[in-house]
């Protein structure tokens, strides 16, 4: 090692072992090496500090979701405070760059204790937004799953899930609808209205333009809102519809299932998310059915960040975190036990 650099040291697994005290012979080796090369002490210490800092940063990221929950619990203590707009904070904290994996029963319990009751929530208009850095995903009060693309926002009406299931979209979102079949689910955006019937679809709405990709079920696309609606099209699964301007009639096409699948798994983020929700999100994103046996999925939470990862690698991390094994019972069915 003629020219010793911090980089050079970090490259050596045995040096990392020395720093983390993971392997006795390596610790011994590097201690001895340093005694023989006192001239490199400064660089050596620098690299050692670098490894330590990375470890501390990992610990910080691992602890952060819990710390945020603890702070929220503190902030919510005085009951007189104005109601929190964020319905349940574990949806809302997505902007934070928390990654890693974590299962925290106690965090969920805290969350449950301090989450506002659903009834007063519905009296407000709710706003969900994904910033420029990360996507955001969450469940609406009727358990409909929404994956919001970066720089997109969604507003839900005051009477959502009581009198209607009407949402307003600006940007791109994927919706997988659940809950009451009696209340139609509709998305307004860019001057168009998309009404869904038991469905999963992706929609982009920017002023004057709309793009809809239907994965399952059936949707109706209309131009205009309120009383002046004009029916444009009914879509069947794997059909898409695009209209660029208010006066254009739009184009209907057939798309490959792969196109939508690839978009969905570009980025999936869980932050202190209840396991039940994690399972539903993964089912939505990977088009599989996941069964969990031998644990209460309402009691555990999970945090993790995935980018273009295969279902297998997501399941590896998830199952490691919850100390379970998974198996594919067939192509589209996964059993976690």
């Amino acid at each position: 090692m003629d020219e010793l650099t911090v980089d050079g040291l970090l490259q050596q697994p045995s040096f990392i072992n020395y720093c983390t005290r993971a392997n006795e012979p390596d610790v011994h080796f590097w201690e001895q090496w340093l005694r023989q090369h006192p001239e490199h002490t400064a660089t050596f210490r620098e690299a050692e500090e670098m490894v330590k800092s990375m470890g501390w940063l990992l610990i910080a990221e691992y602890e952060k979701a819990g710390a945020m929950a603890r702070m929220d619990a503190y902030l919510q203590k005085p009951a007189k405070k104005k109601p929190v707009m964020k319905p349940v904070y574990w949806w809302a904290a997505v902007a934070a760059a928390v990654a890693g994996l974590m299962v925290g029963q106690r965090y969920l319990q805290q969350a449950k204790q301090h989450a506002p009751a659903p009834a007063p929530l519905l009296a407000q208009q709710l706003h969900y937004a994904a910033g420029g850095k990360e996507r955001s995903s969450f469940m609406l009060p009727d358990s409909t799953y929404v994956l919001l693309e970066k720089n997109s926002s969604l507003d839900i009406d005051r009477d959502y899930n009581a009198a209607n299931r009407h949402v307003k979209l600006n940007g791109t979102g994927y919706f997988r609808i659940r809950g009451k079949a009696s209340l139609p689910f509709d998305v307004e955006g860019g001057g168009y209205l998309v009404t869904a019937l038991g469905t999963a679809f992706k929609m982009t709405a920017r002023s004057g333009g709309v793009h809809v990709m239907l994965e399952q079920g059936k949707v109706k696309v209309e131009q205009g809102t309120g009383n002046q609606k004009k029916l444009l099209v009914y879509l069947q699964p794997m059909q898409s519809f695009a209209s660029e301007a208010a006066d254009a009639s739009g184009t209907q096409q057939v798309f490959e299932p792969k196109a939508l699948a690839a978009w969905k798994i570009q980025e999936i983020i869980f932050e202190n998310t209840p396991l039940q929700e994690v399972v539903f999100q993964l089912e939505s994103c990977y088009n599989v059915k996941i069964n969990v046996e031998g644990m209460d999925i309402n009691k555990e939470t999970f945090s993790g960040k995935f980018r273009n990862d295969s279902l297998q690698s997501v399941l590896d991390v998830l199952c490691f975190a919850v100390n379970k094994q998974y198996e594919f019972t067939d192509e589209t069915n996964v059993l976690i036990k």
Binding site: A22, S53, L58, K305, D316, V317
Partner: peptide, 27 residues
């Protein structure tokens, strides 16, 4: 610098590093 280095790890690479740093596990 530390932050950007950590962020460029894939989830599985990160997991192994986490096991080593946070849980102090051997290979």
């Amino acid at each position: 610098l530390i932050q950007s280095a950590l962020q460029s790890l894939t989830p599985s690479q990160r997991e192994v590093i986490e096991l080593r740093f946070i849980h102090h596990m051997s290979l």
